[in-house]
Simulated assay, not measured.
Amino acid sequence: MPFVEEYGPAWVPGPFERGTDGPQLILAGVDGSPTALRAGAYAAGLARRQRSRLVVVYVLSPSAWTGMSPSLLAAAQEQAHSDMIDELRRPIQNLAAEAHISITLEVRRGDAYTELKRVAVTRQADLVVVGASESAGHRLVGSVATRLVRAGLWPVTVVP
């Protein structure tokens, strides 16, 4: 079951203007990494300038170690996830108030690619913004950003 919070004013589409209609819904995938936080800031600026709705998605991915020692590691991981959500919540609330934009924070569990794709399809995102992977291993198996681009369902902006 996803966790969803709404911040800022209710989103209302502006009047149509030929040649200036941009994305109505921008989805930003964040995970707490520096590149993801830059991606969130980029998406927020774009949403403000384009008068778009912004949906920020944080995906909780359980560690492989959690299954080996469910009690201790699961509790520690849940606390870490809860702390990360709190760290994301404060700047999102401030940004929504200062920039006067509608922001939705959605927290999901599972594989980052699968959940970002699911939210983008469900909410009919016009643009997906994610941070570039900082992991060397993703050059071999592909990063979430690469997989989203290959899905070819929406424009994807990858922020370094």
Rank of each mutant, 00 (worst) to 15 (best):
V56S: 00
A44Q: 01
R49C: 04
A10G: 10
T146F: 08
E78A: 15
E87S: 13
A75V: 08
Q77T: 03
R108T: 13
W65Y: 08
A41R: 13
R90C: 00
L27Q: 03
R108W: 05
Q93M: 05
W154E: 07
R139G: 15
H138S: 15
P34S: 09
H138L: 11
G110I: 09
G137C: 11
P155I: 04
W11A: 06
Y58N: 04
E106I: 09
R108N: 06
V107P: 01
E5R: 08
D126L: 10
V158A: 03
V156C: 05
Q77P: 01
H100Q: 15
V144M: 09
W65S: 08
V59Y: 01
G40V: 04
S33D: 02
I101P: 03
L60R: 15
T157D: 05
L73C: 00
V130W: 05
H138C: 14
Q79P: 01
A97V: 00
S69H: 10
V12K: 14
V144D: 08
L116E: 08
S135E: 14
P9D: 06
V107T: 11
A36I: 03
R53Q: 11
R90V: 06
G152W: 02
V128W: 07
T66W: 04
S33F: 04
W65H: 07
P34I: 04
V130G: 10
L127E: 09
R49K: 11
S82A: 14
Y113F: 15
F3C: 03
T104M: 10
F16G: 04
W154R: 13
S61I: 02
L88V: 02
V55C: 12
R109M: 09
Q124G: 11
S71C: 02
P91T: 01
I101Q: 04
R18N: 07
A10H: 10
E78N: 10
